[in-house]
C-alpha cells in the first residue's frame, strides 16, 4: 500500500499541468492524511504510538519472567560478573539440577494437582447449582441471601481463619484434602462468590421460555436443570473451572495453614518453594568455603520449575482463558 501511495505521489509531482504551489499543497495534504489519519483510517503516528505502548507495556510485563529465566541459567561466575547482563556465557543447567532435587517434585506436583483439582470440581458444580437457584427461582429472603453472598466476598479471611481452623481440627480435617474439599462442596471455596455470580449471570440470560416449554413437556425442575441448563452453560463451566484451578493452585495462605502446621504427607509445589532455602541448606549443607552456597541462580531455577506446569498448561489453553470471559456475560448486558 505504501508503494502504491508513493507512486501516486510521484505521478502528482511529474504532472506538468500543475504549478509548484499546487503540488506542494497536494503533497502536504497527502502527508497529513498518512500521518494523522483520514475519516476512519488511523494515521501512521497514532498507530505507531499504540504499538509502542503495547510493546513497551508488554516488555514491562514480561521483564520479571525474562529476568527469572536468564538468572536461572547463570553460573556463579556469570552472576558475579557485572558485565554479563542478559546473555549467560555458557549454557548452564546445574542450577536446574540442584533446584529439581530440592523441590521434591514428584510428591509436590501430585499434591498440587490434588489440591487444585478436587476442590475445583466440587466448587464448580456447587456454584452452578447455587447460581441456578438464585437465577431461576423466586423465594422469600432471596435478596437477603444474595446480599450475604456478596458480603462474604469482602470479609477478610483472618476473621474467619481462627474459628474455622479450630472447627476443622476438632473435626479432624486439617492436614488432609478434606480441609479444602469440604468448604468447596459447601459453596465456600476460594472466591466462590465470583463463580456463583458467573453462573447467576449466565442463567439469568438464558430465556425463560425454554424452561417453560420443558415444563409443559412434563420435565420437572431437576430434569430441566440437568438437561437444559447445564448443557447450555458449557462456556461458564470452562471459565469457572480454569480460574478455580489456577486460584487453588496458587493458593498458599490456606495450604500453609492446613498442611504445614499439622503432620501430613501432602505438600504442594508452592509450599516447597516457600521452604526452598531451608530445604536447600539441609540437602546441601554449607561447609567452610564450599561451593554449595545457595545463590540467586538456584533460587530462580526453583521458581521457574514451580511455575512451569501452569505456564505450559496456559500456553495450550490460553484461548479459553482470555476469550471465555466474553462468553459468560459476567459483564452484564
Amino acid at each position: 500500500m505504501a508503494t502504491k501511495q508513493a507512486t501516486r505521489l510521484m505521478n502528482v509531482l511529474r504532472n506538468d499541468q500543475m504549478d509548484a504551489k499546487e503540488k506542494l499543497h497536494l503533497v502536504r495534504l497527502k502527508l497529513h492524511h498518512i500521518l494523522f489519519g483520514f475519516n476512519d483510517r488511523k494515521g501512521l503516528l497514532l498507530k505507531l504510538v499504540i504499538y509502542m505502548l503495547l510493546l513497551g507495556i508488554g516488555f514491562v510485563y514480561l521483564y520479571p519472567i525474562l529476568y527469572m529465566f536468564i538468572t536461572s541459567m547463570k553460573s556463579l561466575n556469570d552472576l558475579l560478573d557485572m558485565a554479563i547482563n542478559w546473555i549467560p556465557s555458557s549454557f548452564y543447567t546445574q542450577n536446574y539440577q540442584q533446584a529439581y532435587s530440592v523441590l521434591n517434585i514428584r510428591p509436590a506436583l501430585l499434591g498440587s494437582i490434588q489440591i487444585a483439582l478436587f476442590p475445583t470440581i466440587l466448587q464448580v458444580v456447587v456454584s452452578a447449582t447455587v447460581g441456578y437457584g438464585f437465577a431461576r427461582f423466586n423465594f422469600p429472603l432471596k435478596r437477603l441471601w444474595f446480599g450475604l453472598m456478596l458480603f462474604s466476598f469482602i470479609i477478610p479471611p483472618q476473621i474467619l481463619m481462627m474459628p474455622t481452623y479450630r472447627l476443622f481440627s476438632e473435626l479432624g480435617l486439617t492436614g488432609s484434602l478434606s480441609a479444602f474439599t469440604v468448604p468447596a462442596g459447601l459453596g465456600q471455596g476460594l472466591n466462590s462468590t465470583i463463580f456463583i455470580l458467573i453462573f447467576y449471570q449466565f442463567f439469568k440470560q438464558t430465556p425463560k421460555s425454554l424452561y417453560e416449554a420443558a415444563e409443559v413437556d412434563g420435565a420437572n425442575q431437576l430434569v430441566s436443570f440437568f438437561r437444559i441448563a447445564i448443557p447450555m452453560a458449557v462456556p461458564a463451566f470452562i471459565v469457572a473451572f480454569l480460574f478455580s484451578f489456577v486460584w487453588y493452585w496458587n493458593e498458599t495462605y490456606l495450604t500453609t495453614l492446613y498442611l504445614t502446621s499439622s503432620s501430613t504427607d501432602i505438600t504442594t509445589i508452592l509450599i516447597q518453594l516457600q521452604q526452598f532455602e531451608t530445604n536447600y541448606q539441609s540437602l546441601y549443607p554449607t561447609t567452610e568455603a564450599s561451593p554449595n552456597r545457595i545463590n540467586e541462580g538456584i533460587k530462580m531455577a526453583g521458581t521457574v520449575i514451580s511455575i512451569l506446569p501452569l505456564l505450559a498448561t496456559y500456553f495450550f489453553l490460553q484461548r479459553y482463558f482470555v476469550e471465555s470471559v466474553d462468553n459468560t456475560g459476567i459483564t452484564g448486558e
Partner: peptide, 28 residues
C-alpha cells in the same frame, strides 16, 4: 413449589454460609 426448589438449589451454599461464615464470625 418455587420456594422449595429455590432453597433446594441454594442449600449447599446456605449450609456452608451458616457453618463456615456466620458461625465463625460470631465465634471470632
Amino acid at each position: 413449589r418455587e420456594t422449595l426448589y429455590g432453597y433446594l438449589f441454594i442449600l449447599p451454599w446456605l449450609i456452608g454460609f451458616l457453618s463456615l461464615v456466620l458461625y465463625p464470625m460470631i465465634q471470632s
